[in-house]
Design a protein around this nucleic acid. Structure first.
Lengths: 158, 158
DNA sequence: GTAATTGCAAACGCTTTGCAGCGCC
DNA sequence: GGCGCTGCAAAGCGTTTGCAATTAC
């Protein structure tokens, strides 16, 4: 499973960013919040709340509500981004990453490919009355496995 | 509310497409299925299952299950497309339409803008081991209303 | 000390499912 | 006439909410 490659200095930088954001909103720096940030940086490129929760469970005592709550904070301060790739649940990724999502219409598999060129192209677009923060590109079609056997319904594999 | 402009000839063409698809799968041409197609063509650019259901309710006796079922068929045969713009529910639009979604991070409002240039650019991209059907671009940021009062939480509209 | 935060469990809302009866082919 | 489709109601499941207990500041 592809993982994020977050080195020590980026990790510290993000922790600092988060701490600053929390303070700026007069909120509290609880151990749960920093534990969740740490775990979020260790997830694979895409992860959902449940994956993070299962991962953190053994190590700390943290409830699902707190995970939801904290992940939202991490999105607000631009450390994570939330994507809706299918209807079952939202997935999150590091805001640093710039990739496109190739989504199989047949089996639901999501693959990430480098999207730095496309991101640059899109960031050049301006829209009246709208201030862009970031953009997200989803490309739908058939993955190689489903192209080979187009009639079969297959299980999603992330 | 912006509506789709589906003229008589397009309507008939899509009805034919749907009928052909249904026959090709050895399924039945029920009145419910065609009623739902008709109503889908009358919706605004984006609509969700509930909007279509509420709209069709007075005129025909059709259950929610049938609406879900039929809308999925319409996606399979490329008349509609399903988008996940937020976590509460999927929205649908005519596959013919090519537009980008401007999504406000603050209030959740979704605005459609012409995306034919971007669509053309993206359709030029090829990916190893992936056969593209269509692509979807979501641009996140702040709408003009929320830019003016960036601290307020507002109700989604659309 | 005290107000924000947490954990728990219940509530919520969209979607899916099971099944008896209906109706298209 | 048989089998697929429909409608209904219940179940499913990710997410949100309410509240008492905890804890950061």
């Amino acid at each position: 499973m592809r993982k994020n490659h977050v080195d020590q200095s980026l990790r510290e930088h993000l922790r600092e960013t988060f701490a600053t954001y929390i303070k700026s909103k007069n909120m509290r720096q609880t151990p749960e919040r920093f534990a969740i940030l740490d775990k979020a940086l260790e997830q694979k490129v895409h992860f959902d709340i449940d994956e993070l929760y299962k991962d953190i469970e053994g190590e700390y005592h943290v409830s699902r509500s707190t995970v939801y709550n904290t992940i939202e904070l991490l999105c607000e301060c631009n450390i994570l981004r939330k994507h809706y790739l299918n209807e079952t649940q939202a997935v999150y990724e590091l805001a640093e990453d710039k990739h496109l999502h190739l989504i199989c219409l047949q089996c639901g598999a999501v693959k990430e490919v480098d999207g730095s060129v496309v991101s640059e192209y899109l960031s050049g677009l301006k829209f009246r009355g709208f201030h862009t923060t970031f953009s997200s590109v989803n490309i739908y079609g058939l993955c190689s496995a489903c192209s080979r056997k187009p009639r079969k319904t297959q299980k999603p594999k992330t």
